[in-house]
Every structure is written in structure tokens, then in C-alpha cells.
Design a binder for these strands. Sequence first.
DNA 1: TTTAGCACTCAACCAACTAGAGTGCTAACG
DNA 2: CGTTAGCACTCTAGTTGGTTGAGTGCTAAA
Lengths: 344, 344
Amino acid sequence: MLTERQKRILWAICEDYIESAEPVGSRSVSKKDDVGFSAATVRNEMADLEEMGFLEQPHTSAGRIPSQQGYRFYVDHLLTPQIWGDEEIHAIHNLFQKDTTHIEQAIEHTSELLSQLTNYTSVVIGPKLQDHRLRHLQMIPLTEHSAVLIIVTDLGHVNQQRVLLPEGMSISVMERLVNLLNKRLQGISLSKLRLVVERDLADELTRYVAEYGSMVFLLDQMLAPQPESRIYTSGTTKMLDQPEFRDLHKMKSLLDLLDGKNQSIIQLLNSSPSSGVQVKIGNEISIEGANHISFIIASFSLDSESIGAIGVLGPTRMEYAKVIGLMDVISKDISKRLTEFYEK
Amino acid sequence: MLTERQKRILWAICEDYIESAEPVGSRSVSKKDDVGFSAATVRNEMADLEEMGFLEQPHTSAGRIPSQQGYRFYVDHLLTPQIWGDEEIHAIHNLFQKDTTHIEQAIEHTSELLSQLTNYTSVVIGPKLQDHRLRHLQMIPLTEHSAVLIIVTDLGHVNQQRVLLPEGMSISVMERLVNLLNKRLQGISLSKLRLVVERDLADELTRYVAEYGSMVFLLDQMLAPQPESRIYTSGTTKMLDQPEFRDLHKMKSLLDLLDGKNQSIIQLLNSSPSSGVQVKIGNEISIEGANHISFIIASFSLDSESIGAIGVLGPTRMEYAKVIGLMDVISKDISKRLTEFYEK
DNA sequence: TTTAGCACTCAACCAACTAGAGTGCTAACG
DNA sequence: CGTTAGCACTCTAGTTGGTTGAGTGCTAAA
């Protein structure tokens, strides 16, 4: 275990390095207000801390920087989360008041706000459509051979699907089909619709349509898997401001991570614990080339069931105290607003 | 006007510089197959071309590179667009066959394809929802005080709107209201809905709902302006591969341009001519800091009315011949597929 | 009019040197 | 015995000066 003095020194080094991005020397540590010891003493302790793996030295005659393990200890035991003022809290509240018709927009704005307040890149993942339950199917004919099928979920989300009728099937047949499905599939989660139809309704359906092939063709279109929940990123370019990413090569692999469609970020977000703020440092993120990156995650929930997550991406040398404090406030606040929103 | 020899030299310099990104010296020009003159002759002509503003010199003892005017001349008079092979054309065709239910997806895939084939960043803007015409309104009650209003347009596009009922208004009143609007607003473009209601239907509406304030509150929600047409970008990070953007500062302003939400890109895309491929070079793009950038645009159409545009963004030292050829093929092909798609 | 030759320019590269920040160790101090 | 001052040592970053080579512009010859 670390002595009280070692903790204080580690803390000082972390804070200093996070601010300056330069290796911290013994002199500057000893000059800090909270540290009363001479540079020489600090040097001894620093050598010990390095031996224990909390610090590292870029080269012999440079100062020390926190190692991944050092950050871990700092985050877990040393930092005090920043308390955010009313102004920011107010900005969060506004997100949901301004734009109550589309949650997607509120989520997008959350992402922007997060990035603005922290000056890091933010990532937000919205409710997984697949987990919503079916509330209502609605068909709207377009031409003789095509229609739009609208799927409304229990949370008021709407998804459309353009459907082409198979050869020889009339709109009225499809209408009856939709009516039947409407009665039978209420409350089933979208991801299971197709399954349930096949298991429980196959027989019944054949009574409606003579040709089974056409039916399958139609159902496949109607109940096609919903698109993955979208992720919203904001402030991607803020990464470029961080001195550790001056290296173009690193930068590129990082941007590729964020350039939409990338599964690994989604997985990370989904893996966030249902309550509290989680900090992943360096290779704790199990993604190739994610050294020097930290990822702070918190999930938000509806009726105490986790339905999405917010994340902030930055260098390992990240202002943890600031971001953790903010994420805590935001995630809780969003959950509250979301619940209110759906109760109306 | 330029002599035939000068044209050939300018052409050679452009091609060489586009490929190598290094200033081109007189020797390498004279060694090109199509140029039979000695280095000394070329030097004289180069000096002339520089005087006329077609070339510039990074410093005294370096080769020449094309100026913006030089590129302009090259694009307008010297290059021959690349003819693309069956393979690529085939890939384009597939876009619409694979995924006929969502045009949005086809558009997104177009963007990806464009970026993959060119190795530059691509931007695509989809149909402007505001210009669609109303086909059908459909209301789906959620709770006693809220409902989802679904707007189906003539092109089969669907937009949802969550609506909160004003205090004291019942669902059935809203249902009647929707029925009325359905009858009266058919064929009106979405952007004009609100206007038409106010102008032509105000009187009639007051018969349905006693309190005018509630009505306005409701209509505002129902007919809220549709979100701007989304832009799809792909291959953003490809910019990092271009040696001219090694400078982080330039890089950042460029990425900021692309980082969604940016109006200037949308405006540029919308300004593309209804037919043909347009090339904007350097400060012809009237955006701050867009020197060293070129933007190639083409629009696609439905029933010969332009409804969207595709664009490729790259350094001024861009493979114009390749990209122009491709854009020409793609834009025409998409228009064709789109028309076919909506005829079904 | 075209080309060969030549002196000149300038960025890029390399090596040597310097300055400065920081360390580790040792010896003295309270 | 823990703490501190002093000092020699190390290593990077920045500077200087010299060299190289690509490329130019000019002039004179073909």
C-alpha cells in the first residue's frame, strides 16, 4: 500500500501532468502547496513509485509521468470529482424542454453539450430499437404493388418500411395480414417478431395466403431487422487539440474508430454498468491501438432499466475529475427527464 | 492563349504533380513520352507559364507546381475523364438492388462506394424532405394525452412526430382534426403545410376546437418543420493520407467543415448544377480556409428534377480525371435507378 | 528556334556543440 | 533515522555550420 506521502506525490504528479502534458520534475512537485517536502525527498519517493509501477520516465533525464496503473490509482482513490455549477445543469435541463418531440434530437444535443463542456470527443448511444415492444402496425398503400408499413413501439418510436407486394398479391390481402399481425404481436419485442410469427402463426397465416413463398417474401420485408441503434459523436476534431495525438498515424486509427459504423465503440458503450460512471484507461479498453486513450462511460436509464449510454473519449492524460463529475450529473439527469418524458 | 507546346507542358506538370505531390522539375517533364523537348526548352516555357499565372514555385530552386488557375485550365481543357470499367458500374447497380426498402441506406452506400473507389472523402445529400408533398397523415394514440403523428409523403417517405395534447383536448378531437387535414392538405409540399392551414383553413378549424390557442399549440407540433436533409459523409479520414494535410491546423479546420451540422457544405452541394459534373478549385469554394481543397459535385435527379447531390472532397492536387469520370457515371446511374425505384 | 553548358540558389540532411532540466547518489543535518 | 543540500552525470532539444543535390536562369553555340 502507498504511504500518505506517496499518495500526495502521485496526486500532484497526475494533476500537474494532466494540466501541462509535460513530464513532471521533482522540483515542481515539491513547490506545490499541498506538498511540503524538498525536491530530494520527492525524488526518492518518485523512484519508489516508479519501481511499484505507478510512474514512468520517458527517458533518464526527464521528469516522471503517470503510468496506466498510476492513472488507475488516481481515478480510484485520489481525485475528487468536480462539482458542476447551476449553469451547466441548467443547460442539461433545457435539452429536454426545447425539443420534446424527438428523443433522438435530445440525445444528439446531449452529445454536443458533453463535448462542449469537456472539450473532448463525446459518444452517445441511443435506445436499442430492437428491445422496444410492438405497439401498433399501420399500413399505408402507395401504389398497387407497394405500401409503407409503419411500426410503432411502446416508447412511441416509429419505424417505416417500404414493402413491395409479391406478384399476384393484392393490397387487401396484405391489409388483412397486417390486421392479424396487429392482434397477435402486441407487446412482442421487435427483435423477436419474426421468430414468433414463424413459431406460433405459421399455420394460421397459410389460411390467408395460398402461396407460402409469397407470404415469406412479404413478411421478410415487413419485419426486416431494424437498424442498429445509432451512435452520435460530437467534437471529433477536439482530439486533434491534444498534443499526444500530433502523430498522424495514431490520429488516423483513432478517427477511424469514431468514423461511424464501428462496432467496437458500440460494444464498449453497451458494456457500461447500469449505474455510476466507469473509467476505462489505456489498454483496459480492449481495442487495438487504444493505448493512450481513456474512455469514460455512464449509462442512462428509463424506469431504472438501462437503455443507452454516454461516453467521453480522450487521452489517458484526461481531466478525469472534471469529466467524471459532469458525466455523473448528466447521466442521472437524463434518466430523470427521460422517465418524466415517457410518463406524459 | 496557350500554344500547343505550353498546353502539353502544363498537362505533364499537372499529371506528374497529382501523382507525386512533389514539385516538378524541367528534367522530368522533358523525359515524359508525350513531350519531346529538352529540359532547357521546357524551362523557358515554364518561366512563361509562371508569368501567366498557371504555375508557381515554392522556392527558387525547386520545381514548379500548378497554381489554382493552372488546375482550372487543366480541368477545363486538358484532362480526359477516366472511363470506368464494368466492375465499378456493377457495384453501383447493386446499391439499389440490395436494399430497396430504404432510399436513405442506398444513399449512404453510395457515399461509401464513392469514397472507396476514389480514396477521397465523399459527401452525399439526400432528397429534401421539405419539397415532398403530403400524401397521408396518420395518427396513432399513445396515451390519453399524447399520440404519434405520421406523415407520409408522395415519395413514400415517412416522418413521425410525437404530439402532446393540450390540456382539456381529447384524442377524438384530434382525430377529427387529422381527418380534416388529411382531406384538405393532400399534395401540398411539407414546407407549405403550416402556411396553407393558416391561410385557408383557419376559420373552418375553429369549428372543431373551441379554444384557438390549444389548436395552434397542437398544429405547431403536428406540422413542425421537418429536419434538414441529412448529409452522409464517408472516408473522412482519407484526408489524413494526403501529404498536404500533414499540417494539423489545416487538418482541423477541414475536419470541422465535415463534422456534420455544417451548413456551408450543404449549401455547396445544393448549389450544384442540375446536370453535369462541376469542379470547384481552391478559393472558388467560398469558404474560409478552403484553399488547397477541391470539391467535385454532381447532382442526381428524379423525373429530371434535381433532388440531391454527390460530392467528393480532396486536395487541389486531386485526381480530377478519375473522379470526374466516376461522378459522371454514378450521378447518371443513380438518377436512373431512382426513377425506376419510384415507378414501381 | 532549340539545345548544351555552367554558375547560382536554396531546402534538406547531417554532425557537432551547447544549454538546461532533471536525475541519482552521497554526505551532512536535526 | 528520516530529511535535505550539493554535485556529478545523463539525456533531449535547439542551434550552428557545412555539404549535397535538385533545379533554375542565362548565355552561347548548333
